[in-house]
Design a protein around this nucleic acid. Structure first.
Lengths: 357, 357
DNA sequence: CTGTTAGCGCTTTCAG
DNA sequence: CTGAAAGCGCTAACAG
């Protein structure tokens, strides 16, 4: 428990002021390259580790905006909860986090809001991209160039937008895991298919790729990908289409959370339990279907953690100079079976209130 | 982003000093009950939330000792890594964490060390109990009464010791998960058995109970529990005993990490791949056996997180008055298959250095 | 039991 | 480009 090395020690050692040491350490402009190098070296040698607590006490508040599509959809509620949680955790560090929700039906209002936020005094913006990713990408890229705002994305990405980082589920791994599970659950001689939202979204494409690879490794007869465009009716109808097309269908992997309407139809058609289903995420409806043995397994994507980390990492970048070696941060998908479903009861409990779909 | 309410605001509002507000808020002695109540109420009304950062800047350093059995065993190395990580995270908060390792062959040296640590100026002690739990329990209880030390346990518990909390894997859930997995992997007509370290340890008993329950739910022919007492030779020999006793053995659940010698014998006997094996935790050897299809699944117990949270929670209790609604804190076991094994490669990488057994 | 006061280690004006 | 100095919000001596 040796004496802590402070900024004063470093300053005194070099015969300069603490202000200069500070500026040098924080990559601020207006420090000669020579002093900066000197300071860095001495700090290193002396074992100086700046105190984050002391730093946060004095520094100017940071403001983060979060822009989300205004969908009534359990997944988003979880991301939101994660964001609020991070805000709470960071309350002491003078970080202020504000959430904005905009309709995702059309892209225009979303983009307008983005321009509007850019006018305000935010330091960073976190975006959960609506399904039409490419249009938004351009806007972000433009704002990146014109302002000194920092952007991050969560859940899906905005490719080519020059955002700082993206936090998302490891979709490719999730796809492989689904394939392995179906290999354990279903007859491998029978065909399996994958159902997803829509393939304009980068994350969805990843899950498909993973499932394809996994099918190969684990010897599944992978027979097709179907989109339901996050439309309940379409999902409902799709069930019939599939059982007609594949009379001996062995398994289905649902890459998005929207499996409920589909499963309902399957039950109506008398196929429930006969076809092995692996779903995504944990929601009250999915939990119910698992208890009824309609869904055999689901792959949890931790939306809560996604939201939480997006805020946390953006803050760490802004305030503590955190570096990202990899700008796409992938979270580990988790396998949920009937036995460990109770572990997610807190989440289900939390969700009950704001969960509709 | 309204103005922050500080301790000064509360003090001014009540016409008292900040010192009194501080004392009242932190349950310190020497504040009249009347003032305390008044302060609490006013703080609440004004929306005062004490700043943890500011607090940590001034307060006296806290010291935490960690006492571990000195076993050369990958699991422990992970717990240690978690502890070090928490220490690092807390470095700014003036918390100092020191680790002590003592042989676990006999109980005496462990207990002696405990007395020795109690003499030193620690505020809290975290214990990873050696297999003989009951003897240590008594000592902890005694020290709890004689000193104002705070105790916590990690990985297993010291029942009746009056420790503040225990962090451990949810063993019962892990057992159930193993049963469900074996139900998916093995022929349910064939018998399954469980192998564990020794049943004097409370966590091991939990996994057995969980596996028993799970066998019932998932229709397994659960046929016995066998101990290997963490002895390599014994584990090696046990493989032969089991295949002789159960010629049509369908599956085995290994409740502890020590499955390697056992599997080796199984391979020698030509049973590898024929009997479905579910193991515990992720270590280099286990990863290798999974790639060879000898072990089909493993249940990760997150020893790293166990260590990390033990330190973190103890600190939060000491410094921030954190309350525990439940003094046994159970972490979620995670299912690892061949497909998601790569997610644990960081851990495996970390382990390579200090991993021997 | 309560008040006064001197910092904890850093950041940020403001003035050179 | 650099330095002096005033705090950020809290805690803990110390004095009453």
């Amino acid at each position: 428990m040796q004496k802590k090395v402070t900024i004063y020690d470093v300053a005194k050692q070099l015969g300069i002021s603490t202000a200069t040491v500070n500026r040098a350490m924080n990559d601020k402009a207006s420090v000669s390259e020579k002093t900066r190098k000197l300071v860095m070296e001495t700090a290193q040698e002396m074992g100086y580790r700046p105190s984050k607590t002391a730093a946060s006490l004095k520094r100017n508040p940071k403001r983060i905006a979060v822009l989300l599509p205004d969908t009534v959809y359990g997944y988003l509620a979880e991301v939101e909860r994660g964001i609020r949680r991070a805000s709470d955790d960071l309350a002491d560090y003078s970080v202020y986090c504000e959430m904005f929700k905009v309709t995702a039906e059309e892209t225009r209002p979303f983009i307008d809001k983005l321009y509007e936020l850019a006018e305000q005094e935010f330091d960073g913006i976190i975006i959960l991209p609506p399904s039409n990713e490419s249009e938004v990408s351009g806007v972000v890229k433009e704002l990146r160039e014109k302002t000194d705002l920092i952007f991050a994305t969560v859940t899906s990405d905005l490719e080519g937008s020059d955002r700082l980082f993206s936090i998302q589920n490891n979709g490719r791994m999730a796809g492989k895991m689904a394939a392995e599970l179906l290999g354990m659950l279903a007859d491998r001689e029978k065909p399996v298919v994958m159902v997803t939202g829509q393939l304009t979204s980068q994350v969805h494409r990843n899950t498909v790729e993973g499932f394809r690879e996994g099918s190969e490794s684990f010897g599944l007869k992978f027979s097709g990908v179907y989109e339901h465009h996050d439309n309940l009716r379409e999902a409902y109808d799709l069930a019939k289409v599939l059982v007609d097309q594949y009379p001996d269908l062995g398994g289905i992997y649902f890459g998005t959370a929207n499996s409920v309407a589909f499963c309902k139809r399957l039950q109506e058609l008398g196929y429930a339990g006969k076809i092995s289903i692996v779903a995504s995420d944990v929601f009250p409806d999915i939990a119910a279907l698992m208890r009824e043995r309609v869904i055999k397994a689901t792959i949890f994507q931790n939306p809560f953690l996604q939201g939480r980390l997006a805020v946390r990492y953006l803050y760490e970048y802004m305030a503590e100079g955190r570096q990202f070696e990899n700008d796409v941060i992938l979270l580990d998908p988790q396998i949920v079976l009937r036995s460990n479903l109770p572990l997610y009861s807190d989440i289900l409990e939390q969700m009950k209130d704001d969960y509709i779909l």
